[in-house]
């Protein structure tokens, strides 16, 4: 059956539109492309079973929210089995370098990116959601379960640190 035929239209166009950004997003959280892909696949499977289907303006927000929760769930479980890293779970502070697949595609790590990689993970996450995924403060607040003003503060702080580092370089 042609996936573009009637009735499955919206589901399939959501896959085409968001599979890449979501994989990127989940890879950030999990530090591993393969597991991120699994999470994204599950996210779409879950979307397919949604009835009613989320209204058009909320599809992206829905996808990012579910994808994030699934990814965090997996990460939490992994870390729970490893008592040494217990304290790192909730603060989401991770100095893990990005996976090599993503590093390679960057021609050279610019100052800005270096500065970004140095930020606390919660600032990195909202900055990526804003500038890489084009999500509004409101959407980011829904996705991350933070208040809108909290999102504003994190983005502001993050940008400020980056500006400072770029200026000093």
């Amino acid at each position: 059956m042609d996936p573009m035929s009637n009735g499955t239209n919206r589901q399939w166009s959501a896959v085409s539109e968001y599979e890449r950004p979501l994989t990127l997003y989940a890879t950030r959280i999990l530090g591993d492309v393969g597991r991120a892909q699994d999470v994204v696949q599950e996210t779409f499977l879950r979307l397919f079973s949604q009835n009613p289907f989320p209204a058009q303006p909320f599809v992206a927000q829905w996808l990012y929210t579910v994808c994030r929760n699934k990814a965090l769930d997996i990460r939490r479980k992994e870390k729970r089995m490893n008592p040494l890293s217990d304290s790192h779970i909730e603060t989401l502070r991770s100095a893990d370098p990005p996976p090599p697949e993503i590093l390679e595609s960057r021609e050279k790590t610019s100052q800005v990116m270096k500065a970004l990689d140095g930020l606390p993970e919660n600032q990195q996450e909202v900055i990526r959601l804003k500038f890489q995924h084009g999500r509004s403060y409101k959407e980011i607040s829904e996705i991350t379960n933070l208040s809108v003003s909290n999102v504003g503060v994190l983005i502001h702080k993050g940008l400020k640190s980056i500006r400072a580092q770029v200026a000093n370089a």
């Binding site: 892909q37 696949q41 993503i102 500038f131 890489q132």
Partner: peptide
């Protein structure tokens, strides 16, 4: 600058197989 740099990060997206699974499910 950030938006520009972040755009360069390529995403593999789903694998062929996963996409096929989704299509089949639909």
């Amino acid at each position: 600058m950030l938006a520009e740099e972040l755009k360069k990060e390529a995403s593999p997206g789903l694998t062929e197989g996963q996409r096929a699974t989704l299509e089949a499910r639909l």
